[in-house]
Write a protein that binds this DNA or RNA. Sequence first.
DNA 1: TTCATACTTCGATCTTAACCGAACCATCGG
DNA 2: CCGATGGTTCGGTTAAGATCGAAGTATGAA
Lengths: 233, 233
Amino acid sequence: MKEGPVIASVAALLGDPARANILTTLMDGRALTVSELAEAAGVTLQTASGHLAKLDAANLLTAEKQGRHRYFRLSGPDVAQVLEALMGLAERTGATRVRTGPKDAALRSARICYDHLAGERGVALLKGAQRQGLIEGGQDLALTTKGRAFFADFGIDLAGLEKGRRPVCRACLDWSERHSHLGGALGAAILSRMTDRGWVRRETGRVLTFTCEGAAQFATAFMPAQDHVSQVA
Amino acid sequence: MKEGPVIASVAALLGDPARANILTTLMDGRALTVSELAEAAGVTLQTASGHLAKLDAANLLTAEKQGRHRYFRLSGPDVAQVLEALMGLAERTGATRVRTGPKDAALRSARICYDHLAGERGVALLKGAQRQGLIEGGQDLALTTKGRAFFADFGIDLAGLEKGRRPVCRACLDWSERHSHLGGALGAAILSRMTDRGWVRRETGRVLTFTCEGAAQFATAFMPAQDHVSQVA
DNA sequence: TTCATACTTCGATCTTAACCGAACCATCGG
DNA sequence: CCGATGGTTCGGTTAAGATCGAAGTATGAA
């Protein structure tokens, strides 16, 4: 009738457990096949295929055919952002399950949000960068000249990033912490450099684990002369 | 299984047309009775009562009893923000209806987003304030000293706002425009002052209309020496 | 060609939940 | 105390859609 149904159709799409599983699985930014997603969602191949068709029709996913596989990925960072926002709401809702497993703790410590670092470490990264005067602004973020030098030194091609359509700095609200972490092209580039250097390793799902040395270097780089983040098992 | 269901339960709540209608009706920040919401959603009283109970249980709404009425309102600005975000997704989804009625145009021009100004005018307000150097930052917004003087002069008690828990400046993504408008305590205060002064009138639903004089004063205040926003019927 | 894998489409079943009628509480006005 | 209005609870109906088995299509390998 009014404008309600407009949001209802999207929300209904996200409201099915199988589809929600598919989407959250894709939140790490990778592209997965139908069978992989079916497994992740806990449904059969046919069922998953149907769900993916719907999500694709709604432009929440993009499909890519390679041989006899079809790879699906989130169609953009904005989709991931809405999903994170919903997780935040879910937390306040009380729907979040009480049993906080070990994997959950790992997730809170460090995880991938689409293609950048999230969780405690992600929030710490942004806070540290702001404290050091590399990035300024609270909600609309911008690089300082000092920051430009720092990240160039870190091995990031800023000019290249700025050519793209994607915003360089973007504050992305973290559902587990209550603060923002750094998204955007820069956030993605930083994570990419960190994996290149072996600071961090991708586990199953969205979990990221820092190597022992990686954690130390991360700390000296982004939060010098400051308490380090407590280690989480 | 995974973490999907966490978001699924919330999303499913938003995914029913009746409930979506209820929520979007409440997006103007007012508190409405069960019967009013039933009417807005196009369902009977009993049905609406059931929906409201669910939304209340999920902490998306807060209820307030007054005599034999029960007033419901959104439980916070963050709920409204998620709803706006979903509208944004809906647009990209193509689910947005093609028939763009006259009311739709009015909505795009100026509307209430929870308790602050949104739509073309809302975006223009923030842009103007930034251009004049009253507010700085792109995503995390902050008042400049010049801005503090300006809004104090505008009749806003900044010290009072800063005492509250609510962030003073907050960028809120606009679903119709593609830019942010100003939310937070300051956004709410500005709209409040504008209605006090008779610049703007609240229509049915979320629509806001500027008086002729109000539009002029709005323009001189926030976008001096610049093209004015085109008038929308 | 033939077989196997990856996926889609179709059809039937079955669960969920939205919906309303009717009856039941609560509050207000007299 | 009574009637009227606003809201909730209950039960039965109904419609939507999630699910999977089975059959069909496309790609790759042998």
